[in-house]
Amino acid sequence: MNTPDTNASPNILPAEWTLILRPKRNLLDVNLHELWQYRDLIMLFVKRDFVSKFKQTILGPLWFIIQPLLTTIMFTIIFGNIAGISTSGIPKMLFYMTGIVGWTYFSTCLNDTSQTFIKNASLFGKVYFPRLALPISIVISNLVSFIIQFIFLCFFLGWFMIKGADVCPTILVLWLPFLVFLMAALGLGFGIIISSLTTKYRDLSHLVAFGVSLWMYATPIIYPLSQIPDKYKIYVMLNPMTSVVETFKTALLGVGQIHYLQLLYSFCFSLVLLAIGVVTFNKVEKTFMDTV
């Protein structure tokens, strides 16, 4: 055995073991400190997502705006004009777009994070980094696109106000950061739970895509909460996204209902969900390479 030359060694080794790998880790042993150490990686992932998404596209980041715009036009024609669903007197375009922008952030977070393990299996199989870095980077990069869409929505809103529509943002806009947090937490929470389960039960990945689009109809996006018959109201209220979207709309458009109790429910729901998500994710990340 060769004795190391201490002068050549640039690092001073700690006297104690810095890391002990064991078969089973305590369920609650989530290393958030380590995640913080890897914050540069998270930001680089965000940058990667961003750059790779729009390389070799002509319109580039304009796609962020085109997507909700086209969906809004579609909804306006189908649900507004053909089906004739009420929008509580708010201009149809504005009503739908507000709902869509809010919903899109949640749904993209959920969709994208739910594929964390499957999509990155080859990367995870070669090198260690805190696996949570990836879903978190997804939530952040989606936040950037949400902000762009939100700014666009504000312009849209401003234009309608100038044209004299009966809408006005209320003081409730102060709640926006909280609402965005709820969207992110719910999307991330569901996403990482699903991604943890899909490592073993692939069926779930089929469920997610259409499950999320069905879920949208159970959330007051294309209809106002006030339009729901009383006997269904309880179910819609159980949906944690209901109050988030409804408050989002009320804050920006000034028309609608806001239930603080409901918001509290969504908040608690998202915290519990996030906790369950992080714990399952943490458990799965250690051995998923054997099953994927």
Binding site: W17, T18, L19, I20, L21, P23, Y128, M289
Partner: peptide
């Protein structure tokens, strides 16, 4: 793979310094 933390051992312990 075990030492680089890609997957974890079924039994036993791996201790690392640094």
């Amino acid at each position: 793979k075990l030492m680089s933390r890609v997957t974890s051992p079924t039994t036993g312990e791996i201790k690392i310094k640094g």
